[in-house]
Structures are given as structure tokens and as C-alpha cells.
Simulated assay, not measured.
Amino acid sequence: ARRILCEVHEGQSLTAGQRFGIIRFGSRTDLYLPEGCTPLVAVGQRMIGGETVIAELPAAP
């Protein structure tokens, strides 16, 4: 991505599904998930920002 715009600041709280930024002029993004996540997409699958669920997070302890 040529430009990533993040609208969140350190310490700010977010709710599930809330948008926190946008990737402009990019055709590919590498995403790193925390350990314990269950991926819900396949390698090479095309996703739609704000619509495609990427992974399921583990339950909080």
C-alpha cells in the first residue's frame, strides 16, 4: 500500500466492527493475526474491506 491512513490514536477504545483506517492506492496487504486466531479466509481469496470477516479471535480469559 502506498498510503495507510489510521484514524485511531494510542489509548483510544474501539468497538467490534468499527473502522479504524483506510488503505489507499493499494492492491495487496499483508495481515498478521495474533496467535490463537482462527482464519476464516483462504490464501489468495479476494476480500472486501468492511464486509469480509477475516478471522475469529479467541475468547477472552
Rank of each mutant, 00 (worst) to 15 (best):
F25N: 11
L40Y: 03
T52L: 08
P34R: 02
P34S: 01
E51F: 02
E10K: 05
R2V: 14
A16F: 01
E35T: 06
R2W: 04
E35Y: 07
G50Q: 03
T29S: 13
G36A: 06
L31S: 11
A59L: 11
Q18I: 04
A16V: 05
D30N: 11
G44S: 03
D30W: 12
L33M: 14
I4S: 09
Q45W: 01
L31M: 14
L33P: 13
G11M: 01
S13T: 09
R19D: 11
S27E: 12
Y32H: 09
E10W: 00
Y32M: 08
C6P: 00
P34V: 11
S13A: 09
A42K: 10
T38L: 10
Q45P: 15
E56R: 15
E7H: 15
V53E: 14
G21F: 01
Q45I: 06
T38I: 14
T15G: 10
L57E: 07
Q18E: 15
M47E: 06
G17S: 05
A55Y: 08
E10R: 05
G11W: 01
G17W: 07
Y32K: 09
L31C: 15
R2S: 12
G50L: 02
Q45S: 13
E56Y: 01
G17M: 06
Y32F: 15
E10I: 08
R28V: 07
Y32R: 03
Q45H: 02
A55H: 03
P39G: 02
C37W: 02
T15P: 00
A55D: 06
V43Y: 15
A16R: 08
L5P: 03
D30M: 03
L5E: 15
A42I: 01
L31W: 01
P39C: 04
Q45G: 12
I22H: 08
G17H: 05
R46V: 11
R3C: 05
F25M: 03
L40Q: 09
L14Y: 02
I22W: 02
I4T: 11
I54V: 15
R24V: 10
V8P: 04
G49V: 06
I22N: 07
G21P: 01
I4G: 13
L57C: 03
Q12W: 00
Y32G: 07
D30E: 04
Q45F: 00
R28F: 12
E35D: 11
V41C: 12
C37Q: 10
V8N: 09
